[in-house]
Design a protein around this nucleic acid. Structure first.
Lengths: 185, 185
DNA sequence: ATGGGCATGTAAGGAGTTACATGATTCA
DNA sequence: TGAATCATGTAACTCCTTACATGCCCAT
């Protein structure tokens, strides 16, 4: 299980950025950075790590400092680096994401209009929270001037722009529903 | 296989809108409408249809017109309608979508800057195609004044707004990368 | 001494996709 | 008559998540 797929490369890439890491730390770092568009669970991380090692894309590094405590720290091999680079240049597949909110709205006519309105209002609240999180990260990240943080900022900007657009869509959709409601009476 | 999950409700909902349909037609209609945020494969549709019938959420209807040809036309039962309505009012779970483009951009520093630029440019082209498709549908749909099409338009508007925001993000990201490229020389 | 964070791992199952297999009908 | 479309169905497989099991280390 957990053999091919993109998770391998997410892990390789993270390992490349971090230079070396444990499975546990990998997840922590993803939660702090790629969380918005990519996450991994331990149930995928550990088997993949094992597999990557078997294929010699990564190797364990000795941590002489904290001796015994059971922890496996890995780093990329040159073979792993190659595999990562090979994947990086491939055109990403267009994503076909399912969106449950949109599905429910599409079926909106089958419920009272208030149902749809409430879904939208809830979503709006979520968006505000997201947006302020992103903006907080952006502020902190903007201090840093590394190459890495430039790329990070690009992905963050995606989140910010799309969240704002979603917010406007929400507001507009709620207006439209209000009009339906008045008509319907 | 294919027991619970949201696919059931996508099928129930579609069946509610269409009044009655075959599995084959269900897919056709989804491709023509919810395609942007929801699709189903035959490999899920047929087993689910069978299962929904077993649970008496749908029933086969006789099609006296075109007699023999092996086709199963289904419609919702009142129990199915209830199940659908129950699902419709539940707050949709926030989605955790993976985005391969963003992942590759996040790792952008590990490749020449041109790699990231090209990914973005390809994506831009995709977006333009998408956008003109959505706008064409919108034009056609705007003629119609049904309740159904109002909800359809709301989901379409989501596509249009988010695509436009993505387009702007792309343009901006490409600019940022250009700056990195100059710096890096 | 105990709760929380560090750390790894596995088993079971969920949720679907792809590919294949099959055959009727329609229309040019 | 042969390609395209209509139509259904299944088996194998992919890929990941959830939940569980385990145990150390550290600070209060």
């Amino acid at each position: 299980m957990a053999k091919s797929g993109k998770s391998r490369f997410a892990i390789l890439g993270m390992l490349a950025l971090l230079k070396k890491s444990t499975g546990y730390d990998l997840k922590k770092h993803m939660e702090a950075s790629t969380h918005y568009f990519w996450k991994e669970s331990f149930g995928s991380i550990y088997p993949i790590l094992e597999d990557l090692e078997k294929q010699q894309l990564i190797v364990k590094v000795d941590e002489p400092s904290r001796n015994d405590r059971q922890r496996n720290t890995y780093k990329l091999t040159s073979k792993g680096r190659e595999a990562l680079e090979h994947w990086l240049v491939q055109t990403p597949e267009p994503l076909h994401n399912r969106n449950e909110l949109l599905l429910k709205l599409f079926f909106g006519g089958l419920s009272p209009v208030e149902v749809s309105t409430e879904h939208l209002e809830n979503y709006q609240k979520e968006l505000e929270v997201k947006l302020s999180t992103y903006q907080k990260i952006k502020r902190e990240l903007s201090k840093d001037n590394s190459l890495e943080s430039s790329y990070y900022l690009i992905t963050l900007d995606h989140g910010i722009r799309l969240t704002k657009a979603s917010r406007e869509w929400c507001a507009n959709a709620i207006k439209t529903l209000k009009a339906i409601d008045i008509e319907g009476e």
